[in-house]
Amino acid sequence: MSQNGRDVVVVEATRTAIGRGHREKGVFRDVHPADLLSTVYRGVIERSGVPAERVENVIAGCVQQFGEQGVNIARTAWLQEGLPIGASAQTIDLQCGSAQQAVGFAASQIAGGVHDVVIAAGVEHMGRITFADTAATQERFGRAFTERLLDRHQIVNQGLAAEMITERWGFSRTDLDDLAVRSHALAHAATESGAFQREIVAVETPDGPVRRDQGIRPGTSLETLGALKPAFKDGGAITAGNASQISDGAAAVLLMARETADELGLRPRALIVDQTSVGCDPVTMLEGPIPATAAMLRRGGIAIEDIDRFEVNEAFAPVVAAWAHEHRPDMDRVNVRGGAMALGHPLGSSGARLITTLLHVLEDEDRELGLVTMCCAGGLGTATLLQRL
């Protein structure tokens, strides 16, 4: 199985550990976002053994593209690492799905013969470029949403959108907190077993190298989560415990044409079978994984039972709950090493992180077919179907 055009294979994928997005307590508080991104660039190149001069293009996702993350961070991170100047680079924004879309764009370029070797990546340093900074920038340069847009769509913040999904599908607070408890337990188990070691590349900080995700809380229980107050509205179900964490991190995936991998004597690890991005209601905005997954199943002529492992981004617990309600997967196949409620969600990098984790899960568990899907602000969804080789 493969998408139209040349076969596109994943040769390497890596990520940083994920730090808390806190200016004082985050492990990456003193690390520039370009340093996070350049670390994973170097990581996929060195681990794969691909000569850096063979990389023709670099595509990186980043949501908050201003300040330290502005001026095409995909390119500046590449150059500061001393990598060959002949590679092109661009930074893209598809909100939370940015890095997954970077992988999609890279795969499309390779399948279409535009490039042979492309790095798709993503970065977000939410501790140094905060939501407050975003609001100030929007105020300085104009409203984020024009009056014409708001006349058509009564757009709210994502937390309220998550509340709408919770109400629409009839989930209880306990339903959501159960998913959060599960996420922390699985992420902790994966950390303690060493399951994340292969995918993480160390980041040098003034306090020493960081190789361990910072946001996991091993003692998370229904009791501890039940004590948290609703974050977005009185009497609501969404809290800091059943939503993704504000985080810092980067991830990268090295893709190439199958014949290029053969030429370089490299072992392809996975095939990009198919990919898509879709639009959905911009008000509830977070149900994009439902139609994106449906598109993958329909186009591939497969059933949900045919997919061995899923990575569904845990932006908010009701996103996963609604997706599961509609598609009825075996939940033992979903987010088997935890998700963003435990690990964190560095916006622009999470898509590449999910693909990196899925690749390693498929290899470690000797499985074949995996799906990554994400919701994105503005009413968007992304999906990538991966086949381990």
Score class of each variant (00 low, 15 high):
Glu368Asp: 15
Gln69Leu: 11
Val50Gly: 05
Ala251Ile: 02
Cys96Tyr: 09
Leu149His: 15
Gly279Asn: 14
Gln197Met: 05
Gly21Val: 10
Ser349Pro: 00
Ala324Asn: 10
Ala89Gly: 09
Ile18Thr: 11
Ala252Thr: 12
Gln80Ile: 10
Thr357Arg: 05
Val361Tyr: 06
Gly170Pro: 06
Asp175Thr: 06
Gly97Phe: 10
Val63Lys: 10
Gly21Cys: 13
Thr134Lys: 15
Glu192Asp: 11
Met296Phe: 09
Arg328Asn: 15
Leu79Pro: 01
Val181Phe: 00
Val58Met: 04
Ala202Met: 09
Gly288Lys: 03
Ser221Met: 02
Thr146Lys: 14
Gln245Val: 08
Ala144Ile: 00
Val27His: 04
Ala187Asn: 03
Phe316Met: 08
Arg6Leu: 07
Val123Leu: 10
Ser2Pro: 04
Leu343Arg: 00
Ala292Arg: 00
Glu53Val: 00
Pro289Val: 02
Gly43Ala: 15
Arg269Glu: 13
Leu186Val: 01
Val361Gly: 00
Gly344Val: 07
Met374Arg: 08
Thr284Phe: 08
Val9Ile: 07
Glu365Trp: 01
Gly122Asn: 11
Gln158His: 05
His32Arg: 11
Trp78Pro: 06
Glu139Met: 07
Leu225Ala: 00
Ala121Val: 07
Ala135Trp: 12
Gly127Cys: 10
His115Gly: 04
Ala383Trp: 04
Leu358Asn: 13
Cys280Met: 06
Gln387Cys: 09
Gly194Val: 11
Leu94Pro: 05
Gly208Gln: 11
Leu255Asn: 06
Asn72Leu: 10
Ala270Phe: 10
Gly127Ser: 12
Val10Tyr: 09
Gly249Asp: 13
Ala295Leu: 03
Val210His: 10
Glu12Ser: 12
Val40Ala: 03
Ala227Ile: 02
Ala132Gln: 15
Asp330Tyr: 04
Gly249Phe: 09
Ala202Glu: 15
Glu365Ala: 06
Val114Arg: 15
Val201Asp: 04
Arg20Leu: 02
Val273Cys: 13
Gln100Tyr: 05
Gly279Thr: 13
